[in-house]
Simulated scan of single mutants.
Amino acid sequence: MAERERLYHLPEFLARVREGGVHDVRENLGEDVSGVLYHHRGVRVPGHNATFIWHEAGGTFKLVVDGVGDRGAWTTFDADRSWDVFFVRPPDDAPYLAWMTDAEFESDEADRFDEKSAAVGAGRFSFGLYLQPVAVWQELEERAHKADVPCFIYRPSGRTLVPEGDVADYEHALPPELIGDDPPDYLGLVDANVGL
């Protein structure tokens, strides 16, 4: 399958979220999805579902993850940034939905890719949802139920690690906004929380 045939730009995605106010990911993507894995700048949160919520008054949109067990996550984004949303169906991995600002692309990826879609298609993005089919989800859900940690850690090698022990033992692997510091402005983040 050609590169362009497996990557879809969704220019109306956030407009639909705004119009509906709420956008249930599993209900609206038309995929065989048993669960989701929310990717947030190097950490991943397993969830039964995820929902986009539009806040007109605040000029933001929020992603809320219905986490496995007591786990959960939410992230609020500045809706006034130049966002692009993509749906990608890799040949040998779970499909994913990813969103990126122009500023993130220029800061982090423009030296390696000619355009934002190429970066996202290569898996280079800060925020996304991996849509898990039933065969993969059953094992992932089981691991999540056994782990007493709010999130998994993604490694550039492609491995997803389940940390053991206290959160303080792996705080070095968390992005700053998850430990109380400010994120880089170009990401378009307003605030975020991942926890148990």
Rank of each mutant, 00 (worst) to 15 (best):
H55P: 11
D182Q: 10
N28S: 03
E171T: 15
F52T: 01
H48I: 10
K116P: 06
L7T: 15
G195W: 12
L29G: 06
D78A: 14
F13R: 09
V134H: 13
T51V: 15
V22S: 10
P133A: 13
D111H: 10
V22M: 10
H23T: 15
V64R: 12
Y96T: 15
E177Y: 15
R159F: 14
D32E: 06
V190G: 01
I53L: 09
V136W: 01
S117F: 02
L37E: 14
F61G: 07
K146H: 12
L63S: 03
H9C: 05
D166K: 12
A173G: 11
V134M: 14
D66M: 09
A79T: 14
V167F: 07
D185Y: 05
E5H: 07
E171G: 11
F77L: 13
T160S: 08
V136D: 14
V36L: 05
E56N: 04
V162H: 06
D148R: 14
G123Y: 09
W74K: 09
L37T: 13
L178N: 02
N28A: 04
R124I: 12
L37W: 12
T160D: 00
E164N: 06
V85N: 05
I179K: 03
V190L: 05
G47C: 12
T101W: 06
T76P: 00
G67V: 09
D66L: 09
P183Y: 04
I153N: 13
E104L: 00
H48V: 10
W99N: 03
R18L: 06
G58I: 02
D166G: 10
D108W: 08
V167H: 06
S126G: 15
T51W: 15
E27N: 11
A57R: 00
S117K: 01
Y8C: 00
A147W: 03
P156C: 11
A103W: 06
L37M: 15
V22W: 04
A173Q: 15
H23V: 14
R6F: 04
P163I: 08
F77D: 09
V33T: 13
Q132E: 14
P46F: 14
V167P: 08
A94I: 12
R4K: 00
D80P: 09
F113I: 15
R89Y: 13
D181C: 12
L187I: 02
D108I: 12
Y8S: 00
